[in-house]
Write a protein that binds this DNA or RNA. Structure first.
Lengths: 194, 194
DNA sequence: GTTATTTCCTGCCATTTGGCAAGCCGGGCG
DNA sequence: CGCCCGGCTTGCCAAATGGCAGGAAATAAC
């Protein structure tokens, strides 16, 4: 398994040089997931920091009525991580599942802290991942409140068409905060006006 | 102005000793806000990391129709911060405004980085702030999707009664993702069933 | 003290969304 | 080939929510 994509990933933010990236990459372990495989089960403490290089993952939880609710999608080039469980060492409230066959590079909590301690550049990288994730979540939150469901769907389709393509409709629906029934109607309306 | 509350704050997570807290506290500057005063205006880059020791602050943005939407509330004991703008040095999309007279302790971006560099324990503290903020946002996000508006209001009332008390109804309403009209009805229904 | 202004409640009606159930369609399998 | 099953769509109706407007009450301004 070749580390090119991992190294590219590490250098993507600009805070890590090629030489450093090659070095840091040694600590990561290759990781494969098969379609439908559970990567993290709710109730467990997450101990894997995963850089996804191919495939799609979704995170989900159950609402008070027991309905499966998608909380996030992850595509290649992203870090798959339940921040709260991983960093606070608390049981995860969410499940993570592979939507397609996946591959990536993994790090344990101990390994990550080791790198953080030994390599200030990697610490910068880690902070960037956290901050960007935070920013993305805030943007999505704001969207949830300010824009109607139809616009949220249009936006998702425009920015992440691959996700809509690889995830079942019901998952996209619950991610958008509507039922699959409503999303189906929204799609119909969108197609009609086009 | 006395630094007791600041020191207590720094020690609250357990990663900073009393002596270190006293030392670190020297870098902070006292900061006052008057009711209705704007702390950060949308479009500006945030350069202030603010530990709030008294008072209430709210953050808000405008939706596509120009409506004022509350994105968050901050009470004493919390860090008032627009993560994305502060750490990524980008213009803020949100405004921050004091709901009441406030006081706290502030740090510039440069000062914060100085402390991060010089003091590993403070770095831990900072990561904790970020991670807890992230976790809180995720919880809120999940709530937005999984629980009805009435339950969200009940929950806010149960966990942060002080916020409901100090913020005008319309701000609470937009924070919950409903209109002030709807919130007014929800309150009536809640009162009736009690 | 009086006048403006803001905040909040309420009624009426339009729109959106959900729940349910039936139907359609395409893939896997005997 | 024919069957079954899961994913998606659609129609019908009920419930939740929004928009608007009027009015009461509290607050601020003069």
């Amino acid at each position: 398994m070749n580390q090119d994509s991992l190294r590219t990933f590490l250098q993507s933010t600009g805070s890590i040089s090629a030489a450093q990236a090659a070095d840091i990459a040694q600590t990561f372990c290759p990781r494969q997931l098969r379609r439908h495989e559970l990567w993290l089960r709710a109730g467990k403490v997450s101990d894997e920091y995963l850089l996804l290089t191919s495939g799609y993952v979704r995170s989900f939880a159950y609402d008070t009525d027991g309905h499966d609710v998608t909380t996030g999608f992850f595509a290649s080039g992203q870090v798959v991580l339940e921040v709260s469980s991983f960093f606070m060492r608390t049981p995860s409230q969410e499940n993570f599942q592979a939507l397609t066959d996946c591959s990536g590079w993994a790090l344990s909590y101990a390994q990550l802290n080791g790198l953080f301690h030994a390599r200030p550049e990697f610490r910068e990288f880690g902070r960037g991942v956290l901050v960007r994730g935070f920013a993305a979540l805030k943007t999505r939150m704001l969207e949830m409140i300010t824009t109607p469901a139809a616009a949220r769907y249009e936006h998702l389709l425009a920015t992440h068409p691959d996700i809509v393509q690889h995830a079942p409709l019901k998952d996209v629906a619950s991610y958008l905060g509507v039922t699959d029934t409503s999303l189906s109607r929204l799609r119909k309306a969108a197609a009609g006006k086009k």
